[in-house]
Design a protein around this nucleic acid. Structure first.
Lengths: 135, 135
DNA sequence: TAATAACTCGCAAACTATTCGCAAGTAGTG
DNA sequence: CACTACTTGCGAATAGTTTGCGAGTTATTA
């Protein structure tokens, strides 16, 4: 159980709720706090939404999950180990596609070279129009 | 007055409030709805926040302004004619830098070639750590 | 220019997403 | 097993944004 160690290092605890939230994020792939809450409630109806928010934040500080902005409103959370792709959000149909981070390698390098900017391409989605909607 | 024409084409009107909102966006460069409202109120105290929201939306439909997601919560608006740069948001210090869209040309091309995805790089900010904070 | 229809505005209430305060509960340490 | 700091649930509070509605404006047509 990797997470136990990660948490204890910072004086945090591995509570049942925390395990459930982390597990839900891992199973869902990407999910908003609300979706995580729903998932967790399937087995543990009592869990509170603010607990989910707090735990997502905690797990993020510890590095077990990360959030990404896919658009307006809500952030979506990923398990840290799955964050190997960037998100292509289509403004027409709203679909979210994936692409390996490699396609951005060149871009990231440009920004580093020209501006000293260290880019995290996964944090924001890449916005545009998907192949299906371009037609 | 370009905007009058743009609006009339869609059966919309150029009201004093609309002019003021558009002018504020142009002067501010980037601004949240709230900031636009504040700016407009310096000369016209009576204007309502919801009018600003509605007019930003209207002006966006017509193509005179555009919004960008710079982070959590709020969108920020730009005059359409100024949207020639992308935004580098620093996660450490919160600063927003600019870079010409050219640095992303290669990246955009990759996405088009490999995924048929037509990218609007300006819509979402590019997240990372700025040169100053990297040190 | 009067009548009519369509568009806008201001205001207040409604919403959505997220955070906070606090008392009660509990994991982890010794 | 007791103790302490971290956590939870709950309800209320916020922030940002949207909506309903009546009154006011403007464009169009006759």
């Amino acid at each position: 159980m990797v997470e136990k160690h990660e948490l204890h290092e910072k004086g945090l605890r591995l509570t049942p709720q925390r395990e459930l939230v982390l597990q839900a994020v891992r199973e869902l792939g990407h999910a908003t706090p609300e979706e995580v809450a729903d998932k967790v409630r399937q087995t543990h109806p009592g869990i509170n939404l603010s607990t989910v928010y707090r735990n997502l934040e905690t797990l993020e500080n510890v590095g077990l999950v990360q959030h990404t902005h896919l658009g307006h409103g809500g952030a979506t959370y990923h398990a840290a180990e799955e964050l190997t792709h960037l998100h292509l959000v289509c403004g027409e149909c709203g679909s979210v596609g994936d692409a390996p981070i490699d396609v951005a390698a060149n871009f990231v390098q440009n920004l580093a070279d020209d501006y000293g900017f260290r880019t995290d391409v996964t944090h924001f989605a890449i916005y545009g129009t998907c192949a299906a909607c371009v037609k």
